[in-house]
């Protein structure tokens, strides 16, 4: 973990000096995280590609503000969240992801998996923005609770309760779809 942090610190330092290779590396490492956040928030595959780029542009234009590598990921996630919020505010609509888009996202055409993804993605879209963000970060591999707390501006002790509540709300929206959820498992 320490060497990973050192690597990140080194990349951030080089990116601050305008090193393009370091910037590209930072994008490669974090693009899936940013894309996952904006896709979960907007439910729009094509817009999410654009918003991912927009997020990284804002990250690099402001990277000099990053004082500590540990805060880089939460800071970047906050930018992604704000970019997605802006998009959401401007578009003023709740979108349902299409079958074609889901296939694009997951890269295969297993029909049951695709349907399950659509059902859950649709239920997520019905949640409040805060719940969606919370669940996206909480279940993202390698994202720890202190980082989630930093992005959500909550204390670590409140995070688990909030995740539990968000999960219950999500489950409520999924009532009646249990068979589909279990059949693809």
């Amino acid at each position: 973990m320490k060497s990973t942090n050192d690597d990140l610190e080194n990349l951030i330092r080089r990116a601050k000096d305008g090193d393009e290779q370091a910037m590209t590396r930072l994008v490669t490492i974090h693009k899936a995280l940013v894309f996952t956040i904006v896709l979960r928030m907007t439910n729009d595959y094509y817009a999410s590609q654009d918003l991912t780029q927009e997020t990284f542009i804002k990250v690099f234009l402001n990277i000099k503000k990053v004082k500590n590598a540990q805060h880089f990921r939460p800071w970047m996630c906050t930018i992604a969240r704000n970019v997605a919020r802006d998009y959401f505010r401007k578009s003023k609509r709740r979108r349902t992801i299409s079958l074609e888009e889901v296939k694009n996202v997951q890269g295969h055409s297993n029909l049951e998996m695709t349907r399950r993804r659509m059902i859950i993605q649709d239920a997520l879209a019905k949640l409040a923005e805060r719940d969606r963000m919370l669940l996206t970060l909480a279940y993202y591999e390698g994202f720890n609770l202190s980082e989630v707390a930093e992005v959500m501006k909550m204390t670590e002790s409140n995070i688990k309760i909030s995740i539990h509540r968000a999960r219950r709300r999500l489950r409520k929206h999924l009532e009646g779809y249990e068979h589909e959820l279990l059949s693809a498992g």
Partner: peptide, 9 residues
């Protein structure tokens, strides 16, 4: 399982 999925842009 679905929530922990990661998407690639």
């Amino acid at each position: 399982n679905e929530l922990s999925q990661e998407f690639e842009p």
